[in-house]
Design a protein around this nucleic acid. Sequence first.
DNA 1: CGGCACGTTGAAGTGACTCAATTCGCGTGG
DNA 2: CCACGCGAATTGAGTCACTTCAACGTGCCG
Lengths: 268, 268
Amino acid sequence: MRRKVCALPANADAALIRRLRRHSSVPSRDERALARLRPRVAVVAAGADLVRQGDRPDTSIFVLSGMLARYHILARGDRQYISLHIAGDLPDLQSLFLGVMDHALMAVDAARIACFPHEQLQALLVEAPSAAAALWRQTLLDAAIFREAVTRNGLRSGVERLAHVLCEQFVRAKAAGIARADACRFPLTQTQIGQLLGMSLVSVSRAIGTLRKDRLIEVRGGELRVLDWKRLQARAAFDPTYLHLDLGPAPATNQAAEPREVGARSFM
Amino acid sequence: MRRKVCALPANADAALIRRLRRHSSVPSRDERALARLRPRVAVVAAGADLVRQGDRPDTSIFVLSGMLARYHILARGDRQYISLHIAGDLPDLQSLFLGVMDHALMAVDAARIACFPHEQLQALLVEAPSAAAALWRQTLLDAAIFREAVTRNGLRSGVERLAHVLCEQFVRAKAAGIARADACRFPLTQTQIGQLLGMSLVSVSRAIGTLRKDRLIEVRGGELRVLDWKRLQARAAFDPTYLHLDLGPAPATNQAAEPREVGARSFM
DNA sequence: CGGCACGTTGAAGTGACTCAATTCGCGTGG
DNA sequence: CCACGCGAATTGAGTCACTTCAACGTGCCG
């Protein structure tokens, strides 16, 4: 739980605005409301738990760099990772309107995060409806990733599951602008990959070996290198629709919404 | 896709308000905004697809009675059910801010539904922020169920998975007020249960047989009867935290919070 | 009363698991 | 600079839960 408060301004607000602009248009009035938020920036060490099951957090975490992961843990101690989160994600927005955490949030590797107080985010509903809509949409994007996780782990074989999660992370890293042409960060241990995909460490090792032997990928030192994207995607039966990357920055274009007037015109 | 438009008013708005009041407080001003919504009520037959992958729906579906299910389908034809939805659920709210459907929605048995136009719901963000917050929260509750599905199918054995989903449905039916003391509707075929839990029809049959032999449950004619709730719950390692049933009508507790000058009044 | 979908049960096969033994990579300290 | 230690990854071997294949039972509707 070790976290150092960071001195530098870090521009967490600006990063958040950039993130939301990736899928929603945020009018400048709402942008100003976002810019008034006062997040607390922190650095967390690999392996640190940021929020635990049963906690009642009063902030939502925004990832500035590094990788976080959500997980469930059963009484018997088994762990299931639910989703991975990289720069630009708001994993913890799920807790904004839920009292008690039903899952935990940890840092997979060293990460920089910004904590936005719930009350400030909730205030956006009144102050900046378009910004609130963008945040809402962000939580729906998260939910789509959860749904895909169900299908991935339910319908696919071990090798396919692995290929699928690698595809997902690569595409998301690209979208976040933190991937190179053919590589991105992937700091999970094989044990953790197993706990994400519902398979044993041994199976993960063999699955990686298979994809490596087929010259599709290379994984070393927390880095994923994609050698043949087309074939990897085919091997995973990966369809990126669920990531909704095509949600352009201009959705239902509003601009000068008339707060009172009922809905004939769309407001975002 | 057969659906008959229903003549009677059906009070879908009232049902929606009751639903949201289960977990959020809706001030009367916002209640009036909800009451002004003009949903289209329809009856759908068992097995009918309401929304398909790739569609771009412009309404969100509210369940008045019966059971709906979300599912993914892969190119090769395999099907994975993601979640089940009963009276009071808003399965389709997930599509409110996502353009294209990444999953499909179908009727498991005959159902009555109400379709709320997206633009009217989106207008609530400006008109009735507390109502919007309640809807947002509703989508977060859905997401919590998705997360639990990942863990259920990833970490539990066949019998445990079955027991878990039966626990979930029983508790949710209770909360929705449509369960008897020891029984509720459960209209899935064993094939469908298999596609929900990631197991084969044969395994489902044997798992049901096991729970029946242990005198925990009885399933017949689309009805689930719970014979021994305590032991069923133990068998499933079922912890209802993730359903967030304790979210009283008074949420977020930001009573005297001072979120900047604007939101001093709590708005949900 | 036949047809058909759904459910049950037996038997054989297999993918993934556990157990276990090495090997690799890397940081630490003698 | 090399030895050591330790976590992580690889590889082999045996086992098991769940799968598939197949036959049979059951209940419902035309």
